[in-house]
Design a protein around this nucleic acid. Structure first.
Lengths: 236, 236
DNA sequence: AGGCTTTTTTATGATACTATTAAGAAAACC
DNA sequence: GGTTTTCTTAATAGTATCATAAAAAAGCCT
């Protein structure tokens, strides 16, 4: 499993080298240039680690504020927060720690040592990650099983129970065609009963909300989830 | 609850000042002068944190060995290991991290900052149920777990036990839909076969006091706390 | 193309689930 | 032991969700 890291700097250009170095160490890196952007990306990929990279002295004053801002958000509850800054004043470090930082790393630092520190911190991460309840799609869509909700284009979509269950069933084996009988037996439990066009109507409702491209009809057989829509790389 | 810290140095005299400073910060300190001694003391007081204090350059070569030695022992499995040393060669730090260290702190460091770092590390300690008795909401609402009460718009609202427990359960995973069965099993413990509309009535009572927006119904599934309402408190 | 089959879509009535109220039991309180 | 508060049960009302039917569209075959 690969860890997800948010790399924050107002000026993303400055992150190029660090980003590349970390990616070379098998981390899944997202470059972020605002807290707002972080919040949005986190809905899709709650990060294990968040590096607040401070470039210029002008940034410094905001650091503590940014820590507090991040720690307020439920989604970052279990995220390790690292400050990476050229400024190492004691008082500033203490304030950052108080605001919820996990480490304060002085700039510059050699990548190898940084990776060592990151791994030492990740080792302590509680293994309850929110990712477990999320199913990612390539088209900016995420199913949240716990919440019974779907996030698409940063908007929450609510599916009623039957619709949600059908969609979930299809996602268990993306690309596999599920016959109506299979769907009935799984979702409705009861024996192989002649069910009219109920499933079709549910599929219709799902398509209405998520778009027609998500579920494909295989005539005479059943329905399937559009296979290359599922983002397996993230799931691994 | 006070954390137990092992403070290691071959020459215990050199630890006098550091030891006193940490004790003043409400840590439970044991001074240790050999790994053997650490193993013995740990049987009685498994430490939350182990500080390997390196005094002279002569000690340096042993550090990595000592880390490995400590990490071998079952009793220190869940102990956070800090190296406190004047030597900051990158290769040495990397070796220490590889050997299981959690942090490498350069000497000298001001006590205040050291305590900050220690607390940041302890925060991540597994099995540590942080006794946070305040849960903040964005809508000017604060739950006080100790008081079994809620502050909303600067007014205290009292919830009876069952109502409070249900609300508390929902706040443990904001956004997650809890089924009635889940709620019953958590709050009522026992099997409790026959549950009529008991939970509904409790939910009703909660909504009556806190407003309808706090708990959302997911028909056919259960109830959930409105997710973006939670505002995690930072200051412990 | 035409005729047949299967699916989509719309509309509507049924039903399963939840809300609400009230009232009696059970606890808790003093 | 009596009073107040909280919890549960029950009964009714209300509503979102679901299933059914039926028409429209799409797909398939010779």
């Amino acid at each position: 499993m690969s860890y997800t890291i948010f790399l924050y700097n107002k000026n993303t250009d400055s992150l190029f080298e660090l980003s590349n170095n970390l990616m070379a160490n098998d981390f899944n890196i997202f470059q972020i240039s605002s807290i707002k952007e972080a919040n949005e990306k986190a809905l899709l990929h709650p990060p294990h680690l968040f590096i607040l990279d401070i470039f210029s002295d002008a940034d410094q004053t905001d650091v503590v504020e940014q820590c507090i801002e991040i720690r307020k958000k439920e989604i970052f509850n279990n995220t390790i927060l690292i400050i990476h800054s050229p400024n190492t004043e004691d008082y500033l470090q203490i304030e950052c720690f108080k605001a919820g930082a996990d480490d304060y790393i002085k700039k510059p630092i050699r990548t190898k040592l940084l990776v060592s520190r990151i791994n030492a911190l990740l080792k302590r991460l509680k293994n309850t990650t929110q990712e477990e309840h999320l199913i990612h799609f390539s088209n900016q869509m995420v199913i949240n099983i716990e919440h019974y909700s779907i996030l698409k284009n940063n908007e929450f979509i609510f599916l009623p129970r039957k619709e949600f269950e059908i969609l979930l069933l299809l996602t268990t084996k993306p690309g596999k065609v599920f016959s109506r009988d299979e769907i009935v037996q799984t979702i409705w439990k009861k024996e192989y009963k002649q069910i009219g066009r109920t499933i079709d109507v549910h599929i219709r409702k799902i398509r209405e909300k998520l778009g027609d491209e998500v579920i494909k009809t295989v005539k005479g057989v059943g329905y399937k989830l559009e296979e290359d829509l599922l983002n397996k790389s993230v799931l691994a």
